[in-house]
Simulated scan of single mutants.
Amino acid sequence: MERINYRELVQTILKRHSIHHSNDDTEVQLIFDTERNHYQVLHLGWEELRRVYGCIIHIDIKDGKIWIQRDGTETGVANELVTAGVPKQDIILGFHAPYKRKFTEFAPG
């Protein structure tokens, strides 16, 4: 069985999410640092008089594992990764405290 290219998969998933969050008044930026394996989806702009700026998704790939640092999606990026064939032991929910990770179905990190 051929190993999944985590870089390509993460970029594909983030590109798909960037389409769902864009509108006329705000912009979505994809930030891919492929040299250091950092990937983000940012939401920024203005909604009337209110500034919009925030990270929707932040993923790092470290030591062959996918670290989800921020997941502001409804479906859950971890679920999308599993559906795409990534083993749960290769996914770390970095947004959970280290002591809580052992209670999830994913890798403790």
Rank of each mutant, 00 (worst) to 15 (best):
C55A: 04
E80G: 08
E27F: 07
G76K: 09
T75H: 09
K62G: 06
Q40T: 05
V41I: 15
R70K: 14
T26C: 09
L42H: 06
D33Q: 08
G45E: 06
K62M: 13
Q29T: 10
K88W: 02
L14Q: 06
A78V: 05
R36Y: 06
V86I: 14
C55Q: 05
V77T: 11
K88M: 11
L14S: 01
D24W: 00
H20M: 13
P87L: 09
H43T: 05
G64K: 11
R50L: 14
A84V: 11
E27W: 05
I68S: 02
G64P: 04
Q69Y: 01
S22W: 00
E35A: 14
Y53G: 10
I91R: 03
I19M: 06
Y53E: 14
H17A: 08
G85K: 11
E47I: 14
I66A: 05
L49W: 05
G85W: 03
A78G: 05
V41A: 06
C55L: 09
T83Y: 04
E80P: 01
K62H: 12
D90G: 01
R36A: 10
T83R: 12
L81I: 10
Q40H: 06
I91W: 00
I61V: 13
V41H: 00
R36N: 14
D24S: 13
G72L: 12
T83W: 01
T75L: 13
E35D: 12
I31Y: 05
D90E: 13
I59H: 06
K15Y: 01
I19G: 00
N79S: 13
L81V: 08
K88Q: 12
G76Q: 09
I31K: 08
I56N: 06
G45P: 00
V52I: 15
L30S: 01
T75E: 15
R36T: 09
I66L: 13
K65F: 11
K88N: 02
K15P: 00
W46K: 14
N23G: 07
G76Y: 03
F32K: 06
Y39D: 04
I68R: 05
G94M: 00
R16D: 14
I66C: 04
E35V: 15
F32H: 03
E80D: 12
D63T: 11
I31V: 14
P87T: 09
K62N: 13
R51H: 07
H38K: 13
Q89M: 11
I91D: 00
I57K: 02
T83G: 01
G54P: 03
V41P: 06
I61W: 03
